[in-house]
Amino acid sequence: MLEIRNLHAVIDGSEILKGLNLTVNAGEIHAIMGPNGSGKSTLAKVLAGHPTYKVTEGEVIYEGRNLLELAPDERAREGVFLAFQYPIEIPGVSNANFLRMAYNEKAKHDGREELDPLEFDDLLKEKMKIVEMDSSFINRSVNEGFSGGEKKRNEILQMAVLEPKLAVLDETDSGLDIDALRVVANGVSTLANKDNAVILVTHYQRLLNYIEPNFVHVLYKGQIVKSGGKELAMELESKGYDWIKPAGAKA
């Protein structure tokens, strides 16, 4: 589904990703862990197409196509979804309007039927159950005045509505209390299936108690320096990141 080869990306002149490789297949859940500043959010935003990150080398193949050629909105309609580490507030735009618009854009693209407000309301109510969200959120402005946990739930709600093929969750677990963490984890587990793939960016292994990843990768200074199974996350938890050095770096 996704193949990242030798990816280099810069922001404001400094190189953040320095030759990153990663392969993700349908039906897989990948966890990417790494210390603060290692480039996790950069990777997530490059995949989603944030304009301020420039790719200087390497390629990203998604469903057999060059992902980097597509505009951010095209990527989303093709099924790429990023749950933001810091979701943006959009005053004056209701969650319902925003989500319906996003849903219909994708539906149009996929050749499915668009939904009118009433039909969409039904769909939204179903999806809100997954994230245990109160119906009052439907008519509130997107993320405005939401607590940190509510914003994260709202990201998962969007994911539930849009049903992406490739979901990248950037520290959706950070700053959550146990309740919210459980809700978010349940949401992800419910939505993951054999036809889609999830990349969980996290820096605690806590989330992995709820969601079993197929692979765990360590991102360090802009490269994936170690990959393994769930046990790698445990090891990171007990030993920290210091024992890991970039591939090929001198000890």
């Binding site: 909105d73 989303a76 959009i90 005053p91 735009v93 925003f98 849009l162």
Partner: peptide, 30 residues
């Protein structure tokens, strides 16, 4: 209009023209 706001909407599949309209509308809607 904030780039980060436009990007957020784009990342949900909303095309740039609609995203601008939506944010502008939201600004007035306040």
């Amino acid at each position: 209009l904030e780039d980060d706001e436009l990007f957020y909407l784009a990342s949900r599949g909303i095309n740039p023209e609609m995203a601008r309209a939506l944010l502008t509308f939201g600004f007035a809607e306040d």
